[in-house]
Write a protein that binds this DNA or RNA. Sequence first.
DNA 1: TCTATAAATATCGGATTACGATATAATTAT
DNA 2: ATAATTATATCGTAATCCGATATTTATAGA
Lengths: 155, 155
Amino acid sequence: MNSNNEQPTIDYQALAELRYQIRRFLRFSEQVARAEGIEPQQYQLLLALKGLPTDRKPTVRELAERLQLQHNSTVELINRLAEHKLVERHRDDSDQRQVIVTLTTHGEEILQRQARYHQAELATIGPMLLQALETILAHNQDALNRDSRSQEDKG
Amino acid sequence: MNSNNEQPTIDYQALAELRYQIRRFLRFSEQVARAEGIEPQQYQLLLALKGLPTDRKPTVRELAERLQLQHNSTVELINRLAEHKLVERHRDDSDQRQVIVTLTTHGEEILQRQARYHQAELATIGPMLLQALETILAHNQDALNRDSRSQEDKG
DNA sequence: TCTATAAATATCGGATTACGATATAATTAT
DNA sequence: ATAATTATATCGTAATCCGATATTTATAGA
């Protein structure tokens, strides 16, 4: 046997609980979006746009990073949003390759209403999400502590 | 104007940051799953199965709830997992309508490897996720406090 | 300057997935 | 025994994401 046991125990219930809480939040988000007549991903882009850190330019590439999508998927998403007049495209003057995306007034209105729901919902789901996350982090910390001594049991 | 201002301010950056961190975690998860040769959703079901609270029976319906999917989507997901011999179906003796889903040895191995990656990754991403969540919850709390006095500014 | 390479955005075809509508089988209620 | 309910399954459809590829603009090198 390997006495240098590098393998931490795995808290499956904690990992599963985190996924469950994340899914509940995303599910809620999907339903709010659809109730307001847009697709869930469209809301995400509107939010990413409005909530972009102040030192970033709202280009396609930047938005792709924020949404963790491939750039071409992001282009398609922007196409659909532009069709619905929720965002607009503008070429960047300093670099004509780049496209700057901006919210229209209509887009801003829709975003505001949805974001309000989300923020309110997080008052409910947030603590459960927090709890699930803390349980995992605590478990990891425990594992590290046990590591500095020795460890054999597979709880 | 409405002096009874019920509308809390919205912290778009905090909401966007939370989504960004969630997406980073999920993206990581997708990549781990694909690297191990299964689809991301398949990992989620395996985890939900292994991490199901001890007082729940692993039926299709229960798994659908945990994954926040429609039951028919869950059936299809289980079909694909069963084709790959990662889970098995068994009829419940006490109620023949119900299907009990169990992990195969192979499924368990794949799950274990992936869960380990996830737990380790959460040591990195977790704190950022936590931070994003706490910022929103703190903002909500602030809004409630201001409510008991009065509020006019729209930060 | 001319050319090669890189970077940003866009388009198209293919594959996966989730859902709505509907079907089938087992259980429970009247 | 029949009706209503519950659990699972199937099928067609729509949305989305991605890989491969194209186009335009910017930058580096000879």
